[in-house]
Design a protein around this nucleic acid. Structure first.
Lengths: 202, 202
DNA sequence: ATGGCAAGCAAGTAGGTACTTGCATACACA
DNA sequence: TGTGTATGCAAGTACCTACTTGCTTGCCAT
């Protein structure tokens, strides 16, 4: 029964490209290299197929932890944010379609926003640790700063393909976001580094 | 010839809710309180109607200027960002649909990203003025900070309806984003104010 | 060899979609 | 009074959609 997996994969690709409404069963079957009838025999209906795809996709949502205790803030966060950015980039097409059809298919809602809360919590806790260690300003607006960093990652993943000139070069972006983030929290930059290479863009 | 405007308005609403593919001519005609045939007689085709809608929408894109010279950074930016946020919030449904159908309808691309560049430029110029006045750090990563602020506004407008708990209260958000932004640029907060009321959320 | 099972193929059903046509109605202006 | 113009209504065309049915083919274990 290898058709099942071929169809699931193909359906994922086609949904991501055309959305649920635009993903016709013919397209999916063709993309899977499978007869359309096989699709219906295996999943019953187009809606059931969508649910199967979402369920399969739900299993890859593990967000990695941030170091405790913090050691090198900039390095640790840069790696972590780069990882998060890549994850969101991969999800981008499916996310966009899911969001655009939220009203008509509410069952995809938690797929669309899953992870955001978790990332927010992990980041906030990390910054609170920094505060307790006296490495971040006690009076800083942690909540807003974390929100902004996460939005920046989302915005980069979503917007870069459309307006690349509005974002720092892809290999520099995570570090530069993190530096702004840390600075807004009053975290002083590491002393053992050349102090100014935040290469200006444009 | 008042039908034309009724149809244009209705098409905008329906398109924002269901996307181009989901916006059937029947739905649009019903929403406009007009016979479906009138729609075709007036615009010729569904595609032509979409173009008319986009063209009409294009005229409301005027972004207001930022003060020159800067006087009160936090106040000026808060007002300006709040205004921008509201504009994006209004555009949200149409934007989401436009983005999700970019591959199939590339003609809406410039509608989808228009304004972002303009906002970016205005903000950057404002910060450069601050730098020249010695009110912002010369070594700050202006480009990244501006990108982050704009992404935060987009993220707020797009994400708040789905995950409200991930954002500061709607009436505080612009000011708190601006404060983080200014802080990441090394702009010292105004002295004539109570120094810490960045009320924590959650 | 034979039975079971997954899959392909051809055809069909019922409904939705964009779009057209022909005709009736109403109002506006001359 | 007549004439154009905008609109409504009923019906129809051609196509696409999800989904079904009946039959055939190939493979695999017994």
């Amino acid at each position: 029964m290898v058709s099942r997996e071929k169809i699931l994969e193909a359906a994922g690709r086609v949904y991501a490209k055309h959305g649920f409404r635009g993903a016709t069963t013919r397209l999916i079957a063709a993309e899977a290299g499978v007869n359309e009838v096989t699709l219906f025999r295996t999943f019953g209906s187009k809606g059931a197929l969508l649910e199967a795809v979402l369920e399969q996709r739900s299993q890859f949502s593990d967000v990695s932890e941030l170091p405790n205790p913090p050691q090198n803030e900039e390095e640790e966060l840069t790696v972590w944010i780069a990882e998060h950015l890549e994850r969101v980039r991969d999800l981008r097409p499916m996310l966009i379609q899911a969001i655009s059809e939220l009203d008509e298919r509410p069952e995809v809602a938690d797929f669309a926003c899953r992870g955001r809360d978790e990332v927010h919590t992990l980041l906030s806790q990390y910054v609170e640790r920094l505060q307790r260690l006296g490495r971040a300003d006690e009076a800083a607006d942690v909540f807003a700063a974390v929100t902004m960093l996460i939005s920046s990652v989302m915005g980069d993943a979503m917007g870069r393909p459309m307006v690349p000139q509005s974002f720092p070069p892809v290999d520099e972006a995570p570090r530069r976001y993190v530096r702004c983030f840390l600075r807004s929290l009053g975290v002083s930059p590491p002393v053992s580094r050349t102090p100014s290479d935040p290469t200006r863009n444009e």
